[in-house]
């Protein structure tokens, strides 16, 4: 006689034992947390990027703020750059304005697809 024979009645009872029904809301809970999980508003990498940029900005700010006469030095540097770049000359500024407006005007042009197809 085997152990299986010893427990034949019990095995029969176990085989006949129905499984408990899970609560009705469980299925939707599972699906909502898996396949139908809403996309996160902010991705982890975006969070880290913004955090790093902010930390870097704070560090730079602290660095500038702790340098003696930082404001004066910054103003001097800006003035030197403006002068060296020729931005004080009216002609340079005029050509710069022409260049920017031309670039903007070209960017606004649109070429219909149909015309390009016809020209082929």
């Amino acid at each position: 006689m085997t152990h299986d024979d010893d427990f034949a009645d019990l095995d029969r009872m176990l085989a006949a034992l129905p499984l408990e029904e899970p609560p009705a809301a469980l299925r939707s809970r599972i699906l909502t947390s898996t396949v139908y999980r809403p996309a996160p508003a902010v991705h982890a990498w975006e969070f880290w990027l913004v955090g790093t940029v902010l930390a870097l900005a704070a560090w730079l700010l602290w660095l500038v703020a702790t340098v003696p006469h930082a404001g004066e030095r910054f103003a001097d540097l800006t003035a030197r750059l403006v002068e060296q770049g020729g931005l004080t000359s009216l002609t340079t500024l005029l050509w710069l304005a022409v260049g920017i407006s031309t670039a903007w005007w070209i960017s606004q042009l649109s070429f219909p697809t149909a015309r390009r197809v016809r020209s082929r």
């Binding site: 499984l19 408990e20 469980l26 299925r27 599972i30 898996t34 396949v35």
Partner: peptide, 18 residues
């Protein structure tokens, strides 16, 4: 396929819950 996972949930949620 979301439907395929729904089918997996249908098949196994009772057993896993039990």
């Amino acid at each position: 396929s979301s439907q395929a996972f729904e089918e997996i949930v249908t098949r196994y949620q009772r057993a896993v819950y039990n």
